[in-house]
Protein backbone atom coordinates (compact mmCIF):
# COMPACT_ATOMS: atom_id res chain seq x y z
CA UNK A 1 0.00 0.00 0.00
CA UNK A 2 2.72 2.46 0.95
CA UNK A 3 4.34 2.11 -2.46
CA UNK A 4 1.24 2.93 -4.40
CA UNK A 5 2.60 6.17 -5.76
CA UNK A 6 6.13 4.92 -6.06
CA UNK A 7 7.70 5.69 -9.43
CA UNK A 8 11.19 5.36 -10.77
CA UNK A 9 11.88 8.99 -9.95
CA UNK A 10 11.25 8.92 -6.25
CA UNK A 11 12.51 5.39 -5.66
CA UNK A 12 15.82 6.72 -4.39
CA UNK A 13 14.08 9.10 -2.00
CA UNK A 14 12.30 6.26 -0.26
CA UNK A 15 13.66 5.32 3.13
CA UNK A 16 13.93 1.85 4.63
CA UNK A 17 15.88 -1.28 3.85
CA UNK A 18 16.11 -2.14 0.20
CA UNK A 19 14.46 -5.50 -0.55
CA UNK A 20 14.97 -5.64 -4.26
CA UNK A 21 13.94 -4.28 -7.60
CA UNK A 22 10.66 -4.88 -9.37
CA UNK A 23 9.87 -4.37 -13.03
CA UNK A 24 6.83 -5.08 -15.19
CA UNK A 25 6.41 -6.72 -18.58
CA UNK A 26 3.30 -7.21 -20.65
CA UNK A 27 4.70 -8.85 -23.77
CA UNK A 28 5.63 -12.53 -23.31
CA UNK A 29 8.31 -12.29 -26.03
CA UNK A 30 10.03 -9.39 -24.33
CA UNK A 31 9.77 -11.28 -21.04
CA UNK A 32 11.50 -14.35 -22.43
CA UNK A 33 14.19 -12.18 -23.94
CA UNK A 34 14.72 -10.37 -20.62
CA UNK A 35 14.80 -13.64 -18.67
CA UNK A 36 17.49 -14.98 -20.98
CA UNK A 37 19.51 -11.81 -20.55
CA UNK A 38 19.20 -11.99 -16.74
CA UNK A 39 20.20 -15.65 -16.76
CA UNK A 40 23.19 -14.97 -19.01
CA UNK A 41 24.26 -12.02 -16.88
CA UNK A 42 24.64 -14.47 -14.01
CA UNK A 43 21.82 -13.37 -11.71
CA UNK A 44 20.78 -16.01 -9.18
CA UNK A 45 18.33 -14.53 -6.68
CA UNK A 46 15.66 -13.27 -8.98
CA UNK A 47 12.31 -14.48 -10.17
CA UNK A 48 9.52 -13.86 -12.64
CA UNK A 49 5.94 -13.80 -11.38
CA UNK A 50 3.28 -14.58 -13.94
CA UNK A 51 -0.50 -14.97 -13.89
CA UNK A 52 -0.23 -18.31 -15.71
CA UNK A 53 2.62 -20.59 -16.74
CA UNK A 54 4.46 -19.11 -19.73
CA UNK A 55 5.90 -21.61 -22.19
CA UNK A 56 9.67 -21.56 -22.46
CA UNK A 57 10.19 -19.36 -19.42
CA UNK A 58 11.78 -22.14 -17.36
CA UNK A 59 14.43 -22.60 -19.98
CA UNK A 60 14.90 -18.87 -20.43
CA UNK A 61 15.38 -18.42 -16.70
CA UNK A 62 17.61 -21.47 -16.43
CA UNK A 63 15.40 -23.19 -13.87
CA UNK A 64 16.71 -26.65 -13.04
CA UNK A 65 14.43 -29.58 -13.69
CA UNK A 66 12.11 -30.26 -10.75
CA UNK A 67 12.82 -33.27 -8.56
CA UNK A 68 9.08 -33.63 -7.94
CA UNK A 69 8.79 -36.66 -10.21
CA UNK A 70 11.17 -38.59 -7.94
CA UNK A 71 9.17 -37.58 -4.88
CA UNK A 72 5.97 -38.77 -6.57
CA UNK A 73 7.59 -42.04 -7.55
CA UNK A 74 8.67 -42.59 -3.95
CA UNK A 75 5.05 -42.06 -2.94
CA UNK A 76 3.93 -44.64 -5.45
CA UNK A 77 6.40 -47.19 -4.10
CA UNK A 78 5.32 -46.37 -0.56
CA UNK A 79 1.65 -46.85 -1.41
CA UNK A 80 2.30 -50.08 -3.26
CA UNK A 81 4.42 -51.62 -0.52
CA UNK A 82 1.90 -50.54 2.12
CA UNK A 83 -0.86 -52.26 0.17
CA UNK A 84 1.07 -55.47 -0.39
CA UNK A 85 2.38 -55.55 3.19
CA UNK A 86 -0.99 -54.81 4.71
CA UNK A 87 -2.84 -57.45 2.73
CA UNK A 88 -0.19 -60.11 3.18
CA UNK A 89 0.52 -59.44 6.85
CA UNK A 90 -3.10 -59.17 8.02
CA UNK A 91 -4.46 -62.00 5.87
CA UNK A 92 -1.64 -64.52 5.55
CA UNK A 93 0.44 -63.92 8.68
CA UNK A 94 -1.27 -62.20 11.60
CA UNK A 95 -4.71 -63.81 11.42
CA UNK A 96 -5.33 -66.48 8.83
CA UNK A 97 -9.03 -66.60 8.15
CA UNK A 98 -10.34 -69.24 5.81
CA UNK A 99 -13.04 -67.76 3.62
CA UNK A 100 -14.50 -70.16 1.11
CA UNK A 101 -11.14 -71.92 0.80
CA UNK A 102 -9.62 -68.90 -0.91
CA UNK A 103 -5.90 -68.36 -0.60
CA UNK A 104 -4.77 -66.25 2.33
CA UNK A 105 -2.76 -64.06 0.02
CA UNK A 106 -1.96 -63.89 -3.66
CA UNK A 107 -1.10 -61.00 -5.91
CA UNK A 108 -4.14 -61.37 -8.14
CA UNK A 109 -6.77 -60.49 -5.57
CA UNK A 110 -4.51 -57.86 -4.06
CA UNK A 111 -4.42 -55.89 -7.32
CA UNK A 112 -7.31 -53.45 -6.74
CA UNK A 113 -5.98 -52.29 -3.39
CA UNK A 114 -2.36 -52.31 -4.63
CA UNK A 115 -3.47 -50.04 -7.41
CA UNK A 116 -5.58 -47.70 -5.30
CA UNK A 117 -2.96 -47.23 -2.60
CA UNK A 118 -0.23 -46.65 -5.21
CA UNK A 119 -2.35 -43.86 -6.65
CA UNK A 120 -3.10 -42.46 -3.22
CA UNK A 121 0.57 -42.55 -2.22
CA UNK A 122 1.59 -40.82 -5.46
CA UNK A 123 -1.04 -38.13 -5.02
CA UNK A 124 -0.18 -37.37 -1.40
CA UNK A 125 3.55 -37.24 -2.08
CA UNK A 126 3.01 -35.11 -5.18
CA UNK A 127 0.95 -32.53 -3.34
CA UNK A 128 3.14 -32.48 -0.23
CA UNK A 129 6.23 -32.45 -2.43
CA UNK A 130 4.85 -29.51 -4.36
CA UNK A 131 4.19 -27.66 -1.12
CA UNK A 132 7.66 -28.43 0.19
CA UNK A 133 9.44 -27.40 -3.01
CA UNK A 134 7.46 -24.16 -3.25
CA UNK A 135 7.62 -23.61 0.52
CA UNK A 136 3.83 -23.41 0.67
CA UNK A 137 2.19 -22.20 2.74
CA UNK A 138 4.19 -19.01 3.24
CA UNK A 139 1.73 -16.33 4.10
CA UNK A 140 4.24 -13.53 3.80
CA UNK A 141 6.28 -12.20 0.94
CA UNK A 142 8.64 -9.26 1.10
CA UNK A 143 7.13 -7.79 -2.04
CA UNK A 144 3.52 -8.38 -1.14
CA UNK A 145 2.57 -4.75 -0.56
CA UNK A 146 4.02 -3.62 -3.86
CA UNK A 147 1.35 -2.65 -6.38
CA UNK A 148 3.27 -3.98 -9.37
CA UNK A 149 3.82 -7.26 -7.60
CA UNK A 150 0.09 -7.65 -6.98
CA UNK A 151 -0.56 -7.40 -10.70
CA UNK A 152 1.36 -10.65 -11.22
CA UNK A 153 -1.82 -12.60 -10.49
CA UNK A 154 -3.81 -10.45 -12.90
CA UNK A 155 -2.33 -9.46 -16.25
CA UNK A 156 1.33 -8.51 -15.79
CA UNK A 157 4.61 -10.37 -15.76
CA UNK A 158 6.63 -9.08 -12.83
CA UNK A 159 10.35 -9.54 -12.54
CA UNK A 160 11.88 -9.29 -9.06
CA UNK A 161 15.60 -9.09 -8.31
CA UNK A 162 16.52 -9.59 -4.66
CA UNK A 163 19.09 -7.34 -3.05
CA UNK A 164 21.02 -10.39 -1.82
CA UNK A 165 22.11 -11.25 -5.34
CA UNK A 166 25.84 -10.78 -5.88
CA UNK A 167 25.24 -8.82 -9.05
CA UNK A 168 22.61 -6.57 -7.54
CA UNK A 169 23.15 -2.84 -7.65
CA UNK A 170 20.24 -0.50 -7.29
CA UNK A 171 21.16 1.74 -10.22
CA UNK A 172 22.73 -0.86 -12.49
CA UNK A 173 19.99 -3.46 -12.16
CA UNK A 174 17.27 -0.87 -12.68
CA UNK A 175 18.98 0.33 -15.84
CA UNK A 176 19.43 -3.19 -17.09
CA UNK A 177 15.76 -4.00 -16.63
CA UNK A 178 14.72 -0.80 -18.37
CA UNK A 179 17.04 -1.57 -21.24
CA UNK A 180 15.38 -4.99 -21.55
CA UNK A 181 12.03 -3.25 -22.03
CA UNK A 182 10.63 -3.44 -18.51
CA UNK A 183 8.12 -0.79 -17.48
CA UNK A 184 7.69 0.86 -14.10
CA UNK A 185 11.01 -0.36 -12.75
CA UNK A 186 11.43 0.59 -9.12
CA UNK A 187 13.09 -0.32 -5.85
CA UNK A 188 11.04 -1.97 -3.12
CA UNK A 189 11.84 -1.23 0.48
CA UNK A 190 10.33 -2.19 3.78
Amino acid sequence: MMHETLTTQDAAVNTGTVVGIVGEFTDPNALIHAAEAMRDAGFRKWDVHTPYPVHGLDQAMGVKRSILTYISFTGMLGGLSTALGLQWWTGAYDYKLNIGGKEFFNWQFSMPIDFELSILGTAIFTVLGLFALCKLPTWYNRYQEDESFKKATDDTFVITVDCEDDRFSEQGTQEMLRRLGSKNVHTVTN
Binding site: D47, H49, P53, V54, M61, L136, P137, W139, N141, T153
Partner: peptide, 8 residues
Amino acid sequence: LGWTGSNR
Protein backbone atom coordinates in the same frame (compact mmCIF):
# COMPACT_ATOMS: atom_id res chain seq x y z
CA LEU B 1 -1.21 -20.49 0.80
CA GLY B 2 0.71 -17.37 -0.19
CA TRP B 3 0.95 -18.18 -3.90
CA THR B 4 2.78 -15.40 -5.78
CA GLY B 5 2.85 -16.74 -9.32
CA SER B 6 6.61 -17.25 -9.09
CA ASN B 7 7.84 -19.03 -12.17
CA ARG B 8 10.09 -21.17 -10.00
